[in-house]
Amino acid sequence: MLAIRGLRKSFGGRTVLDGFDLRTEAGEFVALLGPNGSGKSTALRCAVGLETPDGGSVDVDGTAAMVFQKIHLVGRRNALDNVCSGALGRLPLHRSFFFPHQIREEAMQCLDRVGLADRALDRCARLSGGQQQRVAIARALCQRANVILADEPVSALDPQAAVQVMELLVDLASAGLAVVAVLHQPELAQKYAHRIVEMRTAVAA
């Protein structure tokens, strides 16, 4: 569950979020739509702790993980190692260069969940854009997240890959995760999301 109440955020005197509220339950897939500058990405970044809001509150029942438009995988490393990196936050520093067997097993399960267990040892640079995005989602799962925040996860993908990623996000919600995705394609939001939240550009004070 994710509960955002009265979120406010400004950058350089420009108001981006002004009293934004959002509640997402486990098992729900919510799409955020709206024009550029309406604060969609900022809301997710505040929710996951990448930005500090000026006001309001964010409550997460469990752990939230972010999936980005720019996928931020290490291209020279294989898919399995990239997914293992999702566990870094719970490993001691001296174990951060060599992932223990139990982490690698968990990462393999995450890759299997996104349909890429057979590509575990492939370098990420050799994977397609859609496959890379699914690896990024598997990495979020390896953080043991029960809230997935996806910032334009399909905007850089071809239509077939976009459908695969959207279907994966729906499946994750059906499995009990809370999923919030920023989208710029209303037709995808209408087809796949359980609920659509439309955001508008905040009026500067």
Results as ranks from 00 to 15, higher is better:
1 M>E: 08
3 A>S: 15
4 I>Y: 03
5 R>P: 04
6 G>F: 04
9 K>N: 03
9 K>G: 08
14 R>L: 05
14 R>Y: 13
15 T>K: 10
15 T>E: 12
16 V>K: 01
17 L>M: 09
19 G>H: 04
19 G>N: 05
20 F>R: 01
25 E>M: 09
27 G>A: 15
28 E>V: 09
32 L>T: 00
34 G>T: 00
36 N>L: 00
36 N>Q: 01
37 G>C: 00
41 S>G: 10
46 C>A: 11
47 A>V: 01
48 V>K: 06
50 L>R: 11
51 E>N: 12
51 E>Y: 08
51 E>W: 05
53 P>N: 13
55 G>H: 08
56 G>L: 07
58 V>L: 03
58 V>S: 06
58 V>A: 12
58 V>R: 15
59 D>Y: 13
60 V>P: 07
62 G>P: 07
63 T>N: 04
63 T>A: 12
64 A>P: 06
65 A>T: 09
66 M>V: 15
67 V>R: 13
70 K>E: 15
71 I>H: 08
71 I>D: 11
72 H>M: 12
73 L>K: 06
76 R>Q: 15
77 R>V: 06
77 R>M: 14
78 N>A: 03
81 D>C: 11
82 N>V: 11
82 N>E: 09
86 G>I: 10
87 A>L: 07
90 R>Q: 11
90 R>T: 11
91 L>H: 11
91 L>I: 06
96 S>C: 14
96 S>K: 15
99 F>C: 12
101 H>P: 14
102 Q>P: 10
103 I>Q: 12
106 E>V: 03
109 Q>M: 14
109 Q>Y: 03
110 C>N: 13
114 V>R: 12
115 G>T: 05
116 L>E: 02
118 D>P: 05
118 D>L: 10
120 A>C: 10
122 D>A: 15
124 C>Q: 02
124 C>L: 03
125 A>S: 13
126 R>C: 09
127 L>T: 06
127 L>F: 05
130 G>M: 10
131 Q>M: 14
132 Q>Y: 04
136 A>Y: 01
136 A>N: 10
137 I>S: 04
138 A>T: 10
138 A>Q: 06
141 L>P: 11
144 R>F: 05
147 V>R: 00
148 I>Q: 08
151 D>W: 00
151 D>N: 10
152 E>L: 00
154 V>P: 06
154 V>M: 04
154 V>Q: 02
155 S>T: 00
156 A>R: 14
159 P>Y: 05
161 A>T: 01
162 A>I: 05
164 Q>H: 10
166 M>F: 04
167 E>L: 12
167 E>Y: 01
168 L>W: 06
169 L>H: 05
171 D>L: 07
173 A>C: 11
173 A>E: 09
173 A>I: 07
174 S>C: 12
175 A>Y: 04
176 G>A: 13
179 V>R: 03
179 V>A: 08
179 V>P: 10
180 V>H: 07
182 V>Y: 00
182 V>S: 00
184 H>F: 00
185 Q>T: 01
187 E>K: 09
188 L>S: 04
188 L>K: 04
189 A>N: 04
192 Y>T: 02
194 H>T: 05
195 R>N: 08
196 I>S: 02
198 E>K: 10
200 R>D: 01
203 V>S: 14
204 A>L: 07
205 A>Q: 14
205 A>T: 05
